[in-house]
Amino acid sequence: MAAIDRKTEGRTATRKLLSSIVDYLPAIILIIAIIVFWELFNIIFDQPDYILPPLHDILYAAYFHASDQFLPNAWVTFQEVIIGYLVAVISGLLIGVGISESVTLRRAILPLVISSQAIPILAIAPVLIIWFGFVMTPKIIIVVLISFFPIVITTVTGLQSVSRDMLYLLDSLSASRWQVLHRVKFPAALPYIFAGLKNSAVISVIGAFVGEYVGAIEGLAPVMILANSAFQTDVVFAAIFYLSFMGIFMYLAVTLIERRMIRWHFIARGSAGQGE
């Protein structure tokens, strides 16, 4: 009996693996197509390496310079991303709740929040460098500036998504504002908020990079600037790969937290016949 169980278990495991390969088949095919196209392009048009290095050179550079250049510098960039992102999440949520729940706060803060997004980051980045120097602080500030806005907007939209009748129902139960907020409005807002959190997670990487680009000693941007001026195009592309991986990592991390925190959202969609 046990042997049979193990056998069928093994079979379902293989089937699971197969079906997950089938699920990711489009992505795998697309990536292979890009690799083949890139390599073929290089062979057919015979580009000089400093204009378009072949893909395997880039991967080799990414591997060869990993321990002496990429990993230490990526770690610096990653710290800026993470710290800036966490500050953006906390401030974004607080500002979002404030704007949604208080008319006074909305009038006071909203114009500032919106105008902060109209400021060209490249224009104030050098000023921040002058104020704080070649340290992490200006980069973190830029990460916060660039990534808190989607969180504010999705938080406000989510909190306001609760129907008028639901608010009547809660009022008929003499619910306090706090009860309405944390029992109903906030859980209802979570799917919206996570959309903003994912958006911000990815653009926070851009924020850190822009901050480094205008003045930094450590980080992936200085690596790129240096490589660029030395015509080491493969190193430039390798740095871009590291940045992309950072963006993907941030996105996946938020997605994992989302799956845990709003499992109901996926159950609901699953049973409605629209599986992930």
Partner: peptide, 18 residues
């Protein structure tokens, strides 16, 4: 008057997360 009345609407207003 709120403590005297229980309310029910056309939509069930159940919380999808609970």
């Amino acid at each position: 008057r709120r403590p005297y009345f229980g309310y029910m609407f056309q939509s069930d207003l159940l919380m999808p997360w609970a």
